[in-house]
Design a protein around this nucleic acid. Structure first.
Length: 270
DNA sequence: AAAGACACCTGGGAGC
DNA sequence: TGCTCCCAGGTGTCTT
């Protein structure tokens, strides 16, 4: 489900309900996600107020008074507000009960997600080595080109490497490369600065548009209020193998790059 | 050191 | 209807 726009959408959806609220109870039903939930340190936050809600890469950070809760949605995770009276179902692993009529529920069928606790989330092992946010000025063509010069991987793998830039997952990598006219299999160190400038613009544009649309709902994504996103209506190549390119009519192709299906137009992307 | 393969899980859809 | 197989939005870790 979630790439950066979906995580951002989730953050915005739950923030108003959480900031300033107090966590009166924490219910851990499934202690084992990708890693074991640190139940003990999590329960110590019971009674604390949530000070802020933010995002770093695809991690959602709930800052409480003494420490922060770090949540990753993995492939199938969802985080959303429900009325306290809503009964939990099979994959509802975790509830944060608030001092209001709401609770924050974490649902994740595949359990690839994770929940961590840290007083200094930026320094956490999982977050420390992350690259810049894609929607900042730090992420520009020169930056990308300088890293690409040292790499022999294909450009799509470079774009999806979280130590290079965070938040560009499989959908938006394909979409950005299409918009920039860059072939996903092209070797990263053989692309000019001009083309990296263009690629960076494309990444920013695609992500910004997707956030504005409330994310992409492929199967089951819902925002913090349980509503779907609408960006899938704007997808140009992702999931469109054997369908005509909107620009030139050539049939969209798919190829597997580092174990992930990648979509591109063989004519528009070189 | 970098790049590729594999692992963790469940559910949904296609094909028979 | 029901079985089997394949695929899926991520990313840490192991192997080359």
């Amino acid at each position: 489900m979630p790439e950066l726009p979906e995580v951002e959408t989730t953050c915005r959806g739950i923030s108003d309900y959480l900031v300033g609220a107090r966590v009166v109870e924490i219910i851990v039903r499934t202690p084992k996600l990708r890693w074991p939930i640190p139940t003990k340190s999590l329960l110590q936050l019971k009674g604390e107020k949530i000070v802020s809600v933010r995002r770093r890469a695809k991690y959602i950070i709930l800052d409480c008074e003494s420490s922060s809760i770090i949540i990753h949605l993995g492939m199938s995770g969802q985080l959303y507000m429900v009325n306290k009276s809503r009964v939990h179902q099979k994959h509802d692993h975790l509830d944060f009960v608030l001092n209001s009529k709401w609770l924050l529920r974490y649902t994740d069928p595949r359990r690839f997600g994770s929940v961590m606790v840290s007083p200094t989330p930026e320094d956490h092992d999982r977050l420390r080595h992350l690259g810049p946010e894609p929607l900042t000025e730090e992420f520009d063509g020169e930056y990308l080109k300088s890293l690409a010069n040292k790499r022999r991987v294909c450009v799509k793998s470079l774009l999806m490497d979280a130590s290079v830039v965070v938040g560009v997952g499989n959908i938006y990598a394909s979409e950005s490369l299409y918009q920039a006219g860059v072939h996903p299999s092209r070797q990263a160190n053989k692309i000019s600065l001009q083309r990296y400038d263009k690629l960076v613009v494309a990444v920013k544009r695609v992500l910004t548009k997707a956030i504005a649309a409330g994310g992409t709902t492929l199967k089951d994504f819902v925002n913090g209020e349980g509503k779907p996103g609408y960006f899938q209506q704007s997808l140009n190549v992702y999931g469109r193998a054997a369908e005509p390119c909107f620009q030139c009519g050539t049939l969209i192709k798919s190829v597997v790059i580092s174990q992930r299906t990648t979509y591109y137009c063989p004519k528009c992307q070189r």
